[in-house]
Design a protein around this nucleic acid. Structure first.
Length: 288
DNA sequence: CGAATTTGACCGTC
DNA sequence: GACGGTCAAATTCG
């Protein structure tokens, strides 16, 4: 009974969120006519939020954090002195910026932040939001700001493949996300040719296309580090390659065979975004 | 009030 | 002991 109610609630939420997403997509289409990039990004972020929540609901994941585990050290937590914290909300990076800059189509939970010796900026640690769901997705990523770039350049290091995408809806949605270059990042598949050693793929300042150069979208992927490839998302390397403009940026000793430096960029996405939006909201593959 | 994030403490490795 | 990675209590926000 409870399960039925939960499911009904999830379906209702998905319906609501996707309806909102449709409205936003329609507005986005209108904005594309006048090339208003700032408005486009806002709407894109809203679409992503809606779809993230829809995905969460479909997974039966209560849009929230995981349960806290008991203290690891036999009640050590109660022995440590009380901590007083101030929220770093007035800093250079707000929550909205994080989401906007580093959204890659997956849902991440931040679990830590650490100041790295020799670096002016802290490293941020994220793991897949489904890490504690469905057996536990092992995917995680580190984000660190590079000190020398203006606009700021962020290094995203991916560790392990997503396993949460092997199931039903998530896989269907990811399939669609692959059609949206600004949202796509790859890890496992792109690194496959590098075998067991860490593999680097450096996309320079072009991975997000023209937007990065206009300083309006400040996060850029410069490194992809991964465990050996799985059979997940076999087509992604080609999509990643499409976003790159220079073969010299590829540091991997054996780049993917599908590498195509002359292929599409942000302008391509703009020209084809209407199709992307329509495909993104094609729910034929989504079984409710 | 629950969700999301921060951040000091803890742990493993070198 | 230094360092990076992770945990989880504390804190803030919607």
């Amino acid at each position: 009974m409870a399960a039925l109610i939960t499911r009904a609630t999830s379906v209702a939420l998905v319906s609501e969120m996707m309806a909102q997403g449709r409205k936003s997509a329609a507005a986005l289409e209108a904005l594309l006519q006048v090339q208003d990039h700032a408005g486009m990004r806002e709407l894109t972020a809203e679409i992503l939020r809606c779809c993230d929540r829809a995905l969460g609901a479909l997974h039966g994941k209560p849009a929230g954090r995981h349960k806290r585990k008991p203290a690891r050290h036999g009640g050590a937590a109660t022995q440590t002195k009380p901590k007083t914290r101030t929220r770093a909300s007035s800093g250079e990076t707000t929550r909205v910026e994080w989401k906007r800059n580093w959204d890659d189509g997956f849902m991440w939970t931040k679990y830590g932040q650490k100041h790295i010796r020799g670096s002016d900026h802290p490293r941020h640690y994220f793991r897949c939001a489904y890490a504690l769901h469905d057996g536990g997705c092992p995917a995680s990523r580190h984000v660190q700001r590079s000190p020398e770039h203006d606009p700021p350049l962020y290094v995203l290091t991916y560790l392990a493949d997503h396993t949460c995408c092997r199931h039903g809806v998530a896989a269907a949605v990811v399939k669609n996300v692959k059609m949206q270059p600004p949202l796509v990042l790859d890890f496992g598949s792109a690194a496959a040719p590098c075998s067991r050693s860490p593999c680097w793929l450096n996309y320079g300042d072009t991975v997000w296309g023209e937007t990065s150069r206009s300083q309006e979208l400040r996060a850029e992927v410069t490194k992809v580090e991964s465990t050996p490839s799985s059979d997940l998302l076999p087509a992604v390397p080609a999509v990643v390659a499409q976003m790159s403009s220079s073969a010299d940026d590829a540091r991997c000793s054996s780049p993917p065979a599908a590498w195509d430096p002359s292929a599409a960029d942000w302008e391509y996405f703009v020209n084809n975004s209407s199709d992307y939006v329509r495909e993104f909201f094609d729910l034929e593959d989504v079984v409710l």
